[in-house]
Design a protein around this nucleic acid. Sequence first.
DNA 1: TAGGCCATCTGGTCCT
DNA 2: AGGACCAGATGGCCTA
Length: 222
Amino acid sequence: MAEFKSLSGDAYLALSHSYAAAGLAFGTARGPEAAGGYGAPGLGGELSAAPAPRTPAAAAESSGEQSGDEDDAFERRRRRRGPGVAADGRRRPREQRSLRLSINARERRRMHDLNDALDGLRAVIPYAHSPSVRKLSKIATLLLAKNYILMQAQALDEMRRLLACLNQGAGLAAPVAAAPVSPFGQAALYPFSAGAALPCADKRAAFSETPPALCKHCAEKP
DNA sequence: TAGGCCATCTGGTCCT
DNA sequence: AGGACCAGATGGCCTA
């Protein structure tokens, strides 16, 4: 597991746990996801680049268009749960139903926009993007993005310290003792700290866009 | 088969 | 009034 390819993999879990240990992100997750890791996609699983295809009936049902199938689907739903049917069982007026459909379509569009934004976020988080790798789940995307932001902030902070040291002629021996504090005032675990479970090579692979020079413990310079 | 993840529908609430 | 946002409910697909 040399890559994030399959964030479900060991690297992902190890990183997640190390972040959680620092109270960075996954610590707030509740339920089974918190224990087992989010989105645990399996290796070799087919990437569902598009949402899992729903049944044609379900797809038609959700299209918001007024086809015959759509009407059937609408009726099925109405019988099942009652939308479109008043509490007393009477049919709703047709205009109310068309209003409902337009509201549904709007909500669908809104959720699609939200998903597009999430896709955009996935595109910029460092993990292996490949057709053979299942994409990050929504929650994993958000948590990873949060960690990534904190990580970048810390790296920046450390770079500034080093720069200050160099400017003072103190060289690299100048202590960077205290744990770096993020701009958000939250003590955070440096991603490449000694507490991280992964060997440096794995860390570099997991955060493929992070230059190895930023790894404090890494003797494996390129 | 259970659990995770997701899309969609729906009604409620708030804002313009 | 209409739109945006939200959360609950529901059902489908997929994987371990």
